[in-house]
Structure formats: structure tokens, C-alpha cells
Design a protein around this nucleic acid. Structure first.
Length: 562
RNA sequence: UGGGGCGUCGCCAAGCGGUAAGGCAACGGGUUUUGGUCCCGUCAUUCGGAGGUUCGAAUCCUUCCGCCCCAGCCA
């Protein structure tokens, strides 16, 4: 068995359980509530749960935790299934819904009532809250706590029949109103909700709460290790209480780990929903979103996300992982896989004055220097080309070794050219075009006399260029920890990065990009990794920049500017 | 200060009584027809603080400090 991925405390627990014979297999589950799209924090959980099951030859269930019909929607179950599959994980026959167990949950609650461990409470929500006490004061017993088993049974059945309005009655576990753990102060386990459920339709009007439903779902499915995030640590005694009182044969072990936080973004479904609904982003799959669908549209690969989840590890301390870690992972993957093209985002016209008029030629270019098997392609060259505006400076600073008046540079896979003249708009002084000469002896980019050139530029032949749109993305927020800022009183809206999306029109790409389809990944040499947006059409191609290449020059320039 | 957790390099994170892994970032240098990739090197005498136990402590004990979570009929 190949053991990959760093070891961590959960793995240690599993290995001990396997060695001791407590378990002979590992059964985990990924239990999303279908009330929103999955984000990279979920990816961490997915990789953990499915990864562990895979590693130890067990299995991982996909279970929709659909116990609150008010919030859930089939749209979300579809997107979740798609995202999990896209990440490369398989649940096989093990697709479940907590709602499949509503009948069992109900029978178990009857058992609790009969055992005197659950009662129907007629307190209003407000009253329940005030009876619960506070962090430092114990709660007070509900006056309904001592209803007879018979009365409880009858009332609960009436609840189930739909005889009551929402909020009039709840079923509560009878535990300990004085417990220092607030979760143990007679928690609500069933509430009345008159709403249409996406699966059980109108079969039920009472719905179990998370604490009650989750442990039982795990138990019913024979889960061995139930992994969840840190905020559920306080719920573990409750998880164990239900399973013990009910005497079930399978009692999974709940283990908590720290959820993922990434800087310059937010990671809660609620906040993400806000961004979508407020129109600050175009949708759940906006490439700036940390959602799986957003990352996918941004050009992230499943492999890069899994690698990322591997690298960040699993522990119990609160963490905020640096975005650069994610960017490292996608660059690492795409460097090996992305075919290279040349494209110019901000075109600057260059006329090669000594190149024959009306003539052109095809020059071979390597598709991926990291993978010879990807072969070569031909790139057309002609008298008029575009280069990146940034690659020319009339008054070049120190260490700038791109094009400047009188300077010679290499056009990648083409020729050495020398800038002879800068043509400007008479009135505005704006640079309109460059007039250069080329050295025919340097065809392909090598000089027979061995003379060196410091810069190599990408370029596109004007007459052959494919006019395209490019979307450059930046971090969604301008501050590293928007949630912490929010707690200090800074509104989320005010910490959004106003320049997180920059749309460029009139970009010029080499003709070979015509062969690309929506979703395809590529590198525009010297610019970064891109993918073809789903909205892209042959008549109007659109490229999303996934991530830039590392840019040493930008760093030098920044440093020089202080 | 009721309960539950967590504090090891700027960010993740190993370490489980034998003398501080690794990755990201950063910074030097080499190679290079992508200022990319790749390669090589630097980067915690110190593990939140203070005591103590021990031949020996990030690891054990005491105490203090800081941060996170919990008072939904959300999950």
C-alpha cells in the first residue's frame, strides 16, 4: 500500500485502531448540507475523508445532511456531487441522505421518550433561550420537563401529524440544565417545520436537528471515524450521549480538526452567499471565489487542489494559509502540463523595416519545454508584429533588459531585432509604433556570431493575430483577514479589492489558440497560466488568467522604487 | 474568566524525554531563446512567559499570559 501525504494525528488514531483490532476497515463520510456551493475548505475535508478511506482500503460515503428543508435545494446537491467527482473522488454506491433515515430517527426518538430521556416542551423559542442560562450561570428546568411518558408520546405524535404551528412545541433531550456544556442543557432534537423537503416532500413536518441526526446517520452507516471541524468539539459529549442512550451497536468516534482559512478571501458559506447575492461577484463560479466551481473556472486543476490539501496538513490549531501556497500548487502543476502559446495583452505595434513587404514565414516553436512529447507548432512571422507594451521603455531603468531605443533583443523563436525609431502621436506624445530592423542571420533566435542579447520577448504577427479578451484576476479582498477586520467593525464591502477583476479587450494571440476549447489550460509565455473561459467563442475568445508566472523583474522594479 | 480547544521561523507544519524535519514565502548564486522552470545556498542556540523535575525538556509538573469556539427550534 502506498502511503502518501504527510502523517497527522487523525492518521495516527486510525492506524492505532487498525492495529488494536478496534476496526478492520476505515469508513468515513463527507456530510455537506446542500445549502450552498463547496469551497476549498470543503476540499480539505473531502481530501481528508476520501483520502483516508482510499489509503486504508476502506470507503467514504457522500451523505447530504438535509435536515433543514428551509435552506436546502437540489441545485446544491447537484453542484456538490459534480465538485466531489471533479476533484477525483468516488463514493460508488455509497450516496446517502440524512432524510433517508427520517423514519429511523423518529423511532429512536420514541425510544428516548419511553426511556424518559426526551420530552415535548411547550416553551417558546425566547423562553427556551432564557431558561438555558448563560455561559456562567446554569439553566433552569423547563416546566414541561416532567411531562409523563404517555403525554410526551401523544404530544409528539400530534407534532408529527401537523396539528401544531411552528415554534409551538419541540422535542428535547432530557439531560442536564446545569451542565457547564451548554449543548447538554436539554437540546432541541425535533422542531416543527412546515416546509417542502427536496426529497421527502410533504411527508414530514417535524425535522431532527443536527446533533441528533448526525450521530445517528453515522451510526446507521457504520462510520468508523467521523471527522468534523473544531467548533463541534463541544458537541462530542452530545454525540456520544445519544448513541449511548440508544444502545446502538455502532458508535463512531468523532474527531475534530481545524478548518482551512486562506488569506485575502472568506471561507464561510454565509459570507460567500452574501457576495453572490449582493452581486459583488458574478456567481458561485466567479473565478475570484474560493469555491471549487470558481477555482475550476479560474483554471485550477483537481490535482493542484489535492496537492494543496496535502501540503497544508491536518492539525488542530487555527490557521490562515497563505494564498501563495495555493498559487505555488497550480504553477507547479501547470508548468508541467500547460501548452505554451504567445499572446500580447497590451499590444504595441512594431514594424520590421527591413523585412520584405507582404511576406511571411512559419517558425517552429516548442509547445512545452518541460515535456518534449508535446511537440512543436509553427508560428507565423511577418513585417508587422505586436509586442507587449511593457516590453519597451523609451528611457529604460537599470536592470531593465527588454527593448529600448537602439537596443537589440530576441523575439522568441524568431529573430533579433533592434529598435531604430519610436513613432509618437504628435499631440499626445503617446507611442504609436516602433520601427525596428531584424538580423536575418538570427532566424530561430540564435546568433551565429555568438552575440548575446539580454531580453527575449513574446510577440504576435499582426496579420495573423486572433483578437481576444483577457480577464486578469487578483485577490478578492484587499486585506489579508477580512473576517477579523469585520469583527473590528470594518464592513466586508469595504475590504473588497476594487481591482479584483480587470478586463482587457483587443489582446492579440497567435493563431494556434484557435484550436483551444472552453476549459482548456495554457500558458501565454512570460505572462502566466490561463484557461479558456466557458463563455469563450471562436468569434470572441476569452482567456482567464489563472495565475501569473513568478515575476522577478516586477520584484526588482518594486525594490528600486522603494 | 462556566466549559471546550489551541499556542514550534512571516505562513502552514513535523516533533510524543536524548539535544529543533519539511513545504510556502523571503534572500543570495548558477543554468536558461519564458527576468518562467531547474539547480545550489542562506533563513528558529530556540519551541507564548516564568519556575520546577531530570545527566538531559519543545516534549513531564506548576503557574501565568495570549488566541479561538459555545448561550440557533443553523450545520
Amino acid at each position: 500500500m502506498e502511503i502518501k501525504g504527510a502523517s497527522h494525528f487523525i492518521q495516527d488514531i486510525i492506524e492505532k485502531d487498525l492495529e488494536s483490532g478496534k476496526h478492520d476497515t476505515v469508513i468515513t463520510r463527507f456530510p455537506p448540507e446542500p445549502n450552498g456551493y463547496l469551497h476549498i475548505g470543503h476540499a480539505k475535508s473531502i481530501c481528508l475523508n476520501f483520502g483516508l478511506a482510499e489509503k486504508y482500503g476502506g470507503r467514504c460515503h457522500l451523505r447530504f445532511d438535509d435536515t433543514n428543508p428551509r435552506k436546502e435545494d437540489p441545485e446544491y446537491v447537484h453542484s456538490i456531487m459534480h465538485d466531489v467527482e471533479w476533484l477525483g473522488f468516488h463514493w460508488g454506491d455509497h450516496l446517502y441522505y440524512a432524510s433517508d433515515y427520517f423514519g429511523e430517527f423518529y423511532r429512536y426518538s420514541l425510544q428516548l421518550i419511553k426511556q424518559g430521556q426526551a420530552y415535548v416542551c411547550s416553551l417558546s423559542p425566547d423562553e427556551i433561550r432564557s431558561y438555558r442560562g448563560t455561559l456562567t450561570e446554569p439553566g433552569i428546568n423547563s416546566p414541561y420537563r416532567k411531562r409523563s411518558v404517555q403525554e410526551n408520546l401523544e404530544l409528539f405524535q400530534e407534532m408529527k401529524k401537523g396539528s401544531f404551528k411552528e415554534g409551538e412545541y419541540v422535542l428535547r433531550a432530557r439531560i442536564d440544565m446545569a451542565s457547564p456544556n451548554i449543548n447538554m442543557r436539554d437540546p432541541v432534537i425535533y422542531r416543527i417545520i412546515h416546509a417542502w423537503h427536496h426529497r421527502t416532500r410533504d411527508a414530514w413536518c417535524i425535522y431532527p436537528t443536527y446533533d441528533y441526526a448526525h450521530c445517528l446517520s453515522d451510526s446507521i452507516e457504520g462510520i468508523t471515524h467521523s471527522l468534523c471541524s473544531l467548533e463541534f468539539q463541544d458537541h462530542r459529549p452530545l454525540y456520544d450521549w445519544f448513541l449511548e442512550q440508544l444502545g446502538v451497536s455502532c458508535h463512531p468516534q468523532q474527531i475534530e480538526f481545524a478548518r482551512l482559512n486562506l488569506n485575502f478571501t472568506v471561507m464561510s458559506k454565509r459570507k460567500l452567499t452574501q457576495l453572490v447575492q449582493s452581486g459583488h461577484v458574478s456567481g458561485w463560479d466567479d473565478p475570484r471565489m474560493p469555491t471549487i466551481s470558481g477555482l475550476r473556472r479560474r483554471g485550477y486543476t483537481p490535482e493542484s487542489i489535492r496537492r494543496f490539501c496535502d501540503l497544508i496538513g491536518v492539525a488542530k490549531s487555527d490557521n490562515v494559509v497563505d494564498m501563495s501556497m495555493l498559487e505555488y500548487c497550480i504553477r507547479e502543476d501547470l508548468n508541467k502540463r500547460a501548452p505554451r502559446y504567445m499572446g500580447v495583452i497590451n499590444p504595441l505595434k512594431v514594424v520590421i523595416t527591413n523585412y520584405p513587404q507582404e511576406s511571411s514565414e512559419e517558425l517552429p516553436a516548442i509547445n512545452n519545454p518541460e515535456d518534449e512529447a508535446m511537440g512543436t507548432r509553427n508560428v507565423p512571422f511577418s513585417r508587422v508584429i505586436y509586442i507587449e507594451a511593457e516590453d519597451f521603455r523609451e528611457d529604460p531603468p537599470k536592470k531593465y533588459f527588454r527593448l529600448a531605443p537602439g537596443r537589440e533583443v530576441r523575439l522568441r523563436y524568431a529573430y533579433f531585432i533592434t529598435c531604430q525609431e519610436v513613432v509618437k502621436d504628435q499631440e499626445t506624445g503617446r507611442i504609436l509604433e516602433l520601427r525596428c530592423t531584424y538580423d536575418p542571420a538570427t532566424r530561430g533566435g540564435d546568433s551565429p556570431d555568438g552575440r548575446k542579447v539580454k531580453g527575449t520577448l513574446h510577440w504576435v504577427s499582426a496579420g495573423h493575430a486572433v483578437r481576444s479578451g483577457v480577464r486578469i484576476y487578483d485577490r478578492l479582498f484587499s486585506r489579508p483577514n477580512p473576517i477579523q477586520d469585520e469583527k473590528k467593525g470594518l464592513a466586508l464591502n469595504d475590504t473588497l479589492n476594487p481591482a479584483s477583476l480587470q478586463e482587457q479587450q483587443g489582446c492579440m494571440m497567435e493563431p494556434a489558440v484557435k484550436g483551444l476549447k472552453p476549459g482548456d489550460i495554457l500558458q501565454f509565455e512570460r505572462l502566466g497560466y490561463f484557461c479558456v473561459d466557458p463563455e469563450s467563442t471562436p468569434a470572441s475568445p476569452v482567456f482567464n488568467r489563472t495565475v501569473s508566472l513568478k515575476d522577478t523583474w516586477a520584484k526588482i522594479e518594486k525594490k528600486m522604487q522603494g
